[in-house]
Simulated assay, not measured.
Amino acid sequence: MNILLTGGTGYIGSHTATVLVQQGHHVVLLDNLSNSSDAVIGQLAHILDAPPVFVRGDVRDGALLDRVLREHAIDAVIHFAGLKAVGESVEKPLDYFSNNVQGTLSLLQAMR
């Protein structure tokens, strides 16, 4: 199965990618690297003996999502591209709304 993991280079996304690949699935990691690093790709390549497909981009970019879903024949999506720091969310509520709500809506529209 071809699975898109948004937030795929984060802690939970990268661990999920490892398990999915070990179970025989093909993963595509989408991440804007706002809370992670592309060094994770190298670490995953070492663990999995091959680098996963990585797309640097934002979950709010509908055109990018459309392209990734189509080009990689995605069968399923696991959405981890959310911001989650409580204190920061109080300081920057519009940033959190944009990423978490608008990002999820963009992803759902692309999946449609």
Rank of each mutant, 00 (worst) to 15 (best):
G103S: 07
Q102A: 14
R70E: 10
D75P: 00
T104M: 09
N32R: 08
A76Q: 12
S98P: 03
I12K: 01
I74H: 03
L83R: 06
Q23S: 10
G8A: 07
A73W: 00
L5E: 03
F54Q: 06
G62I: 15
Q109H: 11
V19R: 14
S34G: 06
D66S: 13
L20Y: 10
E91A: 15
L105D: 02
A63S: 10
V55G: 02
S36M: 06
S89V: 03
G10T: 10
T18W: 04
S36Q: 07
Q102T: 14
G7K: 10
A81M: 01
L20K: 05
G57N: 11
Y96V: 12
D31C: 13
I78L: 09
R60V: 12
L48E: 05
L33M: 06
I3Y: 05
V21S: 09
Q43G: 09
I74S: 00
L83P: 00
L30G: 09
Q109M: 09
S37K: 13
H79E: 01
L83V: 06
F54V: 13
G103A: 06
H72F: 14
I41T: 05
N35M: 03
M111S: 07
I74V: 05
L65H: 13
L48W: 10
T16P: 01
V101S: 02
N2Q: 10
A110T: 01
D38G: 04
P93R: 07
G13F: 07
Y11M: 04
E71D: 15
A76Y: 08
Y11A: 08
D61F: 13
V53G: 02
I41E: 01
A39Y: 06
N35I: 01
H26D: 12
E91D: 13
T9M: 04
A50N: 02
G42S: 15
L5I: 15
N32A: 11
M1A: 08
V101L: 12
Y11Q: 11
S89A: 05
R70V: 13
L107A: 03
H25A: 10
S89P: 00
I78D: 01
D95Q: 15
P52H: 08
V21I: 15
G82H: 10
L4N: 04
T9N: 03
S37C: 10
H79P: 00
A63I: 14
G62A: 14
I12R: 01
Y11T: 09
L48R: 14
G82E: 09
